[in-house]
């Protein structure tokens, strides 16, 4: 009886963990089936070479590059902002800051990642864009610069926290050795600690990029809904994620070509983030082995 009970419980627990695999299979199936339907109507070559994306107009174009450029542009701005700031924070906190300061500031910084993204969108549109416009009047009300910067603020803790953990994991003996040689904190940080923690830092940056690429509400609110193949940060653009939201807000018939476009866009997004996540997982595994 008891053996049976144990067995039933173990099976139930196993099934629960297998649900996570079902979710992945579900995502891949849903995205690819609808995407295959899409590509039976739209040439895959056009999809990757056309620079216009106008599925909702009468003159339909399906060039994902127009959405991809918006995604990459906003992500690039976010990363360009968050990496130097986030890394400086992590080095400061792990090498300079008093312990008590570190303990109070870390949860506060993590609060930045806890703020709902729709709230950040409001911030970008209502505060940052008007501020940018007061300096550069030619910036339009929807632009990738403002969305990118705010997204950068949001992902600061992703970089600072994970990098700080990586720096923290470097054995103290290495730190002591560097100080023993008479190096300053700065020299120690950049010549010894950062190289030693490099894989962890790289992982944090990759995860931040992946987060930026998948971010939806900030760009949907502040970057605009005009797909265009451009790298000009002052004009309205549209990201893959924002397009999916835009279509979802409208009244799109299931089975229509418009309906399928969001899955084609979705699978492009999924592949990008999947590659980044896998890469970061690989590096992290390798990194763990190094110190164990």
């Amino acid at each position: 009886m008891r053996k049976l009970k144990e067995l039933v419980i173990e099976r139930a627990l196993l099934i629960s963990s297998l649900i996570t695999i079902a979710v992945t299979i579900g995502i891949i199936l849903v995205l690819s089936i609808e995407a295959i339907n899409f590509f039976s109507e739209v040439s895959i070559i056009d999809f990757f070479t056309d620079t216009e994306w106008t599925p909702l107009f009468t003159d339909k174009h399906f060039g994902i590059l127009a959405l991809l450029s918006g995604t990459l542009l906003t992500s690039f701005i976010a990363i360009a902002f968050a990496v130097p700031v986030g890394l400086s924070i992590s080095i400061y906190l792990s090498e300079y800051a008093p312990k008590s300061f570190r303990r109070t500031i870390k949860p506060l910084l993590e609060l930045l990642a806890a703020v709902p993204t729709v709230v950040y969108g409001f911030f970008a549109l209502m505060v940052v864009t008007p501020f940018l416009q007061s300096i550069f009047p030619e910036i339009s009300s929807f632009n990738s610069l403002s969305a990118g910067i705010v997204m950068g603020i949001m992902i600061i803790p992703y970089i600072s926290s994970l990098s700080e953990d990586a720096l923290h994991a470097v054995p103290d003996s290495l730190r002591e050795a560097a100080y023993g040689m008479g190096s300053t904190k700065l020299q120690n940080a950049f010549k010894v600690m950062v190289p030693a923690a490099s894989s962890g830092i790289v992982v944090s940056i990759i995860l931040a990029i992946s987060r930026a690429i998948g971010e939806t509400m900030i760009v949907a609110i502040a970057a605009g809904q005009q797909p265009r193949f451009t790298f000009d940060p002052t004009v309205p653009v549209e990201t893959i994620t924002a397009y999916i939201v835009q279509v979802s807000l409208g009244d799109v018939q299931h089975g229509s070509l418009e309906y399928k476009t969001i899955f084609a866009a979705g699978i492009t997004l999924f592949i990008f983030t999947f590659l980044l996540n896998t890469l970061s997982y690989r590096i992290r595994k390798k990194f763990q082995e190094k110190y164990e």
């Binding site: 963990s17 996570t20 695999i21 979710v23 992945t24 579900g26 995502i27 849903v30 995205l31 609808e34 995860l207 992946s210 987060r211 690429i213 998948g214 971010e215 939806t216 994620t241 999916i244 939201v245 979802s248 969001i262 899955f263 979705g266 997004l269 999924f270 983030t273 999947f274 980044l276 996540n277 896998t278 970061s280 997982y281």
Partner: peptide, 24 residues
């Protein structure tokens, strides 16, 4: 497999979960 898979799922953009929910 389970471990890699869960770590990957954690990184899937939320809007993709929306597409999964919509269809399923």
């Amino acid at each position: 497999i389970l471990e890699v898979n869960i770590s990957n799922l954690a990184g899937v953009p939320s809007v993709i979960y929306g597409l999964l929910g919509l269809e399923v």
